[in-house]
């Protein structure tokens, strides 16, 4: 029988018939409030985060690092901080890098370029000499990666400004990059990773491959980390915060820390709601019996 929503009799009944929108508003208020709580939860970097850190630490200086910027505005909350932390590490080690962009996620190119350009200012990195953002190419079920591995300049052709990758004056860095053997490490930033990287690059040429994913999709990558096919992983905002901690960045350069603190506090609200909801449900069952 439908409970009477207009006249709830007891707290248990009131709680069970509570309008979900009230819960949403309460959660919103809780999240706003959590921004002002000066608590920093202690965290220990996960094994897969440390593995990615080690992969970048061991990346050869005579090769470039390929950054696959395959993300979009919807996961900016997670990917932006992950990418910034990785760029800090690359530039701290003076590693040269290229940013790959795909036509299916055109925002990825812009975001990748903007973040790299901002961090590059701090480290004195020069576009064309130390890093390059590639022009977009379409995805084609892995065939694009097979082509990329054999002839990078021939396949990508231009950077994001339309400058030819063969231009020795504007892009001197690219003159030493011909094929996959000139790439020392690949780090892919995406919502869920593209397994074709394993099928056409890592599994064929043995190039180390790391990922930075949204927390929601990180579950699918754990088995590949366990098997060693993925050399390391950043999982969601927590992964970014852990990486910032590993880099020992100053407080002002740890933007991932705030969302993770707020997230930790927000979980308390959800746990409380689950607990109260179950208590109310079980109590109502007892009353019915």
């Amino acid at each position: 029988m439908e409970p009477d929503r207009a006249k709830p009799r007891t707290f248990v009944e009131w709680f069970q018939t509570l309008d979900r929108r009230i819960l949403y508003v309460a959660f919103f208020v809780f999240v706003v409030g959590a921004h002002f709580v000066p608590i920093h939860w202690p965290s220990t970097p996960a094994k897969h985060t440390r593995a990615l850190y080690a992969a970048i630490e061991n990346a050869p200086l005579d090769k470039v690092v390929a950054i696959d910027s395959d993300w979009f505005a919807g996961i900016r909350a997670e990917s932006e901080n992950q990418m910034r932390a990785i760029f800090h590490h690359l530039m701290r080690r003076r590693l040269k890098f290229v940013i790959l962009a795909w036509a299916r996620n055109p925002e990825g190119q812009k975001f990748g370029y903007d973040i790299a350009a901002k961090v590059a200012e701090e480290y004195g990195y020069e576009y064309g000499k130390d890093w390059v953002a590639f022009g977009m190419v379409p995805k084609a079920r892995g065939a694009e990666l097979a082509s990329l591995a054999k002839d990078i300049r021939g396949f990508i052709q231009t950077d994001m400004y339309g400058t030819s990758l063969d231009d020795k004056e504007k892009l001197p860095m690219m003159q030493d990059v011909e094929n996959i053997y000139d790439i020392g490490l690949i780090v892919s930033f995406s919502y869920g990773f593209d397994p074709n990287w394993l099928g056409f690059i890592q599994g064929v040429y043995g190039t180390p491959f790391g990922v930075a994913l949204s927390a929601i999709e990180s579950s699918t990558a754990y088995s590949f980390v366990e098997s060693g096919q993925i050399c390391g992983m950043l999982a969601g905002a927590a992964g970014a915060a852990e990486y910032e901690q590993l880099l020992d960045l100053p407080e002002s350069k740890r933007p991932a820390r705030t969302p993770v603190n707020v997230l930790s506090i927000s979980i308390v609200y959800v746990l409380l709601a689950i607990l109260l909801g179950n208590v109310a449900y079980l109590t109502s069952l007892g009353k019915k019996q």
Partner: peptide, 26 residues
């Protein structure tokens, strides 16, 4: 157990997106 962990991760991503927007508003 693994589905529970998956759902936990789903919740994390969704809430972080909200946190990011709240951070932007504030």
């Amino acid at each position: 157990i693994s589905f529970g962990a998956f759902f936990g991760n789903t919740f994390m991503t969704r809430v972080v997106i909200l946190i990011d927007r709240v951070h932007f508003l504030l």
